[in-house]
Design a protein around this nucleic acid. Structure first.
Lengths: 239, 239
DNA sequence: CGGTTGTTTGATAGGCCTCAAAGTCAGTGG
DNA sequence: CCACTGACTTTGAGGCCTATCAAACAACCG
């Protein structure tokens, strides 16, 4: 399952055999986490990072009154809290949205990597930066896109990202989020997401059932969302 | 002026004399940029990063119809596009909001740093990660805070960040953004920002004139914003 | 087949937007 | 010193998009 992670890295730069070895050696332990579990809490000191091997995880923050904002979604192959290596604690929670399998990576080993593998360090730094680029794109969505574009953009992003790690099947991909969770991603209420989805279905933009997303015409969905994958940096370059 | 940058780093970790030398040696050139200039354009290949020595810069993205979202603000001492070192191009524009002085840092030198100074590399990686943490907090603002809390939160953040680099004066700090720019930060229209500001002034939460922000009672402003500075990671720890 | 979780519907309300025009102010030039 | 200008702020009226609250419906499950 770490193959997804390597695929993701190799989409952006060459990874030598020796580096691949080093990557594989990062994972000290593999664990299963059931769906709907907050497995890392905001502000708690951390000494281990989490590599997502399978499932969907989200980062979220919330306000006192309970309103919740999902800041990012993660799919298999994502290093969901690589940033805790330098931050030492997180400013958000990590929650499984499905049953997940995770790999635990002691910060010790990451530190060692930074001492011995400068290039690999740059690649992981790059991964953090791509994460940040996604947050910026979400800021644009949250601040300026209307409801339909918000939802459409989320679908486009997930379809592409799941494709990178080989989880798409034709014009279809897994999409296990419930409407409330979609709402928490795009800054709407569940009721409004429901109505937006109905309208999108009516227009034939998407189908969403049985936890799968079907996109009959990706170009049309992209147009609605003003989706441009540039911010995902899906290009191989020496770093 | 690079002192602001060093102060910012030292707020988070110790920087040795040798490392300080290395940091100072990063800057190849210093330039002045007038206000209101897009000095880095989205998607353009880059080989130099920009350190902000003085002034205010923003990162923004926009939609076809011209709606603009500012994704982040930068103050003196910020490495405004450190991430271009690994990304090789940016997914956003960089715009000066005031007259600025910038330091140019060839990626070549950053690369060299990653080969020779693993600890300094971790510190800069940390800085990227703090940037990303700010984006997440903005996502929460954009998605879930109401108008007054959005504006209040922006003020709190800027007041703290300007304080870190020594630009606050008592309960006052520079705040050169016009209302339209505030609106572009928080995802509102200029008109609504105007009304929100009036209400905040009426309640004695802030004064804003002559490009300065006055905060009579920071605690009260924090309460309105639900501001918690944890996400800025203002703590010194070995990284 | 109840119980639970998630989706859908309806009615109403409100926060923020839109568009347009007027007001303020600092800077400029005669 | 005072019109003039351009940039920014403020005001007004009306409307729309999304929120709110409540209840009904559907689907899954042991």
């Amino acid at each position: 399952m770490i193959e997804a992670h390597l695929a993701k890295l190799r989409k952006r730069d060459d990874i030598s055999a020796e580096e691949e070895q080093a990557v594989r050696a990062l994972v000290a332990d593999v664990q299963d986490v059931p769906a709907d579990k907050v497995f890392i809490k905001q502000d708690k000191p951390l000494e281990v990072s989490t590599l997502l091997l399978d499932g969907i995880v989200c980062r979220y923050k919330d306000l006192k009154d309970g309103r919740r904002q999902i800041a990012q979604l993660h799919v298999a192959g994502d290093f969901v809290d690589l940033h805790s290596f330098t931050l030492k604690r997180l400013d958000h929670n990590l929650l499984t949205l499905t049953d997940c399998r995770i790999g635990l990576v002691p910060h010790e080993r990451l530190r060692d990597m930074t001492e011995r593998f400068p290039h690999l360090t740059r690649v992981y730094w790059l991964m953090s930066n791509i994460d940040a680029a996604m947050s910026r794109e979400w800021e644009l969505s949250l601040g300026r896109r209307d409801a339909a574009a918000k939802v459409a953009h989320l679908f486009c992003e997930m379809y592409i990202r799941l494709g990178v790690v080989g989880l798409c099947d034709g014009n279809t991909c897994p999409f296990p989020l419930i409407q409330t969770e979609i709402a928490e991603c795009v800054g709407l209420t569940p009721v409004h997401v429901n109505r937006t989805l109905q309208e999108m279905r009516r227009q034939g933009l998407v189908e969403l059932k049985a936890k799968r997303l079907v996109i009959p015409d990706f170009q049309r969905l992209k147009d609605v969302a003003e989706f441009n994958p540039n911010y995902l940096y899906l290009e191989k370059r020496p770093r």
